[in-house]
Simulated assay, not measured.
Amino acid sequence: MKPVRRAWEVLAGFWGQVSRPARHLSLGFLTLGGFIAGIVFWGGFNTALEATNTETFCVSCHEMQDNVFEELKATIHYTNRSGVRATCPDCHVPHDWTDKMGRKMQASKEVWGKIFRTIDTREKFLDKRLELAQHEWARLKANDSLECRNCHDYDSMDLTRQASRSAFIHRNYLATGQATCIDCHKGIAHKLPDMTGVPQGLQAASSLPSPH
């Protein structure tokens, strides 16, 4: 028990020192110092946050590099005529700060999965793929495909350049809140998992009425 008691005495002594009122420093100096320290902390926090919000960081794990990132590179979200690329955070991390922080907290589970090697092989990844996809589909369904709508705006869509069924759905369902992007656009950037046993209505919005 002596080491525990000694550690407690050290912590108590340290707390006594830092909690004791300053004898020789003015309130203005302490306030300014606290303000500067807050700026340094906030700047460091945001720098670290943004460093984890890049495609380079996302694919630094071989689980992402070897699986979903390879699939993304074959889609129009990666290479297209306009040269505008959607990176991993664009689709999986909300832009608004409060929503972003919530998403980062959710993503902490991925660190746990990395540590315990949940999907460290291709076989493990494929076995878990449907479960992982359903989690992401449910998240996008719940937030009305927020990340999709950060780039895609209904009001900016030229529906005359879309197929009749797509234009009908965008005009009558998505824009009025009766459906959301992910209802139809599963598999838009990554291959679909094995959908055997998944109800048809959860695979895509094929049950929506056609324009005719």
Rank of each mutant, 00 (worst) to 15 (best):
M1F: 14
K2T: 13
P3A: 11
P3W: 06
V4S: 11
R5N: 13
R6Q: 12
R6T: 05
A7Q: 00
E9N: 10
F14Q: 06
R20T: 14
P21F: 07
L30D: 12
T31A: 10
G34A: 15
G38I: 07
V40W: 13
W42Y: 10
W42M: 15
T47N: 10
T47P: 07
T47W: 12
A48Y: 03
E50R: 12
E50F: 05
A51E: 05
T52Y: 12
T52K: 07
T52L: 11
T56H: 09
F57Y: 12
V59E: 08
S60N: 10
S60E: 08
H62I: 11
H62G: 06
M64T: 13
N67H: 10
V68K: 07
H77E: 06
N80E: 01
N80G: 02
R81W: 10
R81L: 09
R81M: 12
R85Q: 05
A86L: 11
A86N: 11
V93K: 11
V93T: 14
P94A: 01
P94L: 01
W97F: 10
M101F: 14
M101K: 13
R103N: 09
Q106P: 00
A107T: 03
K109H: 04
E110I: 09
E110M: 03
R117W: 06
T121R: 06
K124G: 03
R129L: 02
L130Q: 10
L130H: 12
A133V: 03
A138V: 05
R139M: 03
L140K: 08
S145E: 08
E147V: 04
N150L: 10
H152K: 02
S156H: 00
M157T: 13
T160S: 10
S166V: 08
S166G: 11
I169C: 09
R171K: 09
Q178A: 15
A179T: 01
I182Q: 00
D183I: 02
H185Q: 02
K186I: 09
A189K: 02
D194H: 11
M195S: 01
P199V: 00
G201E: 07
G201P: 02
Q203L: 08
Q203M: 07
P209N: 08
P209C: 06
